[in-house]
Design a protein around this nucleic acid. Structure first.
Length: 208
DNA sequence: GCTGTGATCGCCT
DNA sequence: GGCGATCACAGCA
């Protein structure tokens, strides 16, 4: 197998429904201001295809200060805050001025697990010890574990020293991917049922 | 494993 | 003023 290379720029130009499964098995690397590396392999994603997608923050072509990064060039990080306490990390794709993005929902943590545990511990007491496989098993969890917040919104993932994506290593089997409807959506008609969620089948680090 | 519920606040209507 | 691309916990199977 070969060492992981940066995800090539043409990969980001795919439509979200193709880019989302393409990201499964790729590596997300977060470098802290201290220089410490935190990393994980992507095991779960969701596609938000464009203005026609009623579940998207950009449904109907909505463009606001909050979702501006969805409209950025392919490879722009879109980080938003939700439920009063969580961040979610997305990667914009397809083309500039087209609001398509892929939500990264879960990672298998591979580097910096000690720091991830510290970041996830936060201020609240935890009754059960946190298992490694649960460190990044959800969109809010992985942002907390990798110290991703609104300050990274708009980051160019193809050129940032702080946040980067690497391709799957060559010479290893392609991960088995299970496709299903997206989760956590409100009333969005047909779009609720479309198969736009991609999960590494039976991976222990997928979200529940 | 599953289900129900409270927490908490920026953003849009 | 209402709600959300969620999480953790309790209680039950």
């Amino acid at each position: 197998m070969t060492d992981p290379l940066p995800l090539p720029s043409e990969a980001y130009r795919e439509p979200a429904e193709r880019f989302a499964p393409r990201l499964i098995g790729c590596q997300l690397v977060r470098t802290l201001p201290t220089g410490e590396r935190l990393a994980g392999v992507i095991v779960e994603t969701e596609a938000y295809t464009g203005p026609e997608d009623l579940a998207s923050h950009a449904a109907g072509g909505r463009r606001t200060a909050r979702n501006e990064s969805m409209w950025g060039p392919p490879g722009t990080a879109y980080v938003y805050f939700t439920y009063g306490m969580h961040f979610c990390f997305n990667v914009s794709c397809y083309s500039a001025d087209h609001p398509a993005a892929v939500l990264v929902r879960a990672l298998e943590p591979t580097e910096g697990l000690g720091t991830m545990h510290a970041l996830r511990a936060g201020t609240k007491l935890r009754r059960q010890p946190l298992r490694d496989r649960d460190l990044c098993a959800g969109p809010g969890r992985l942002c907390q574990a990798l110290a991703i917040d609104r300050s990274l919104d708009g980051t160019d993932l193809t050129a940032s020293p702080y946040l980067a994506l690497f391709d799957r290593p060559g010479g290893v089997a392609e991960p088995p991917v299970r496709v299903s409807p997206r989760v956590g959506l409100g009333e969005v008609g047909d779009w609720k049922d479309k198969p736009l969620r991609f999960v590494w089948a039976d991976h222990p680090c997928r979200s529940r």
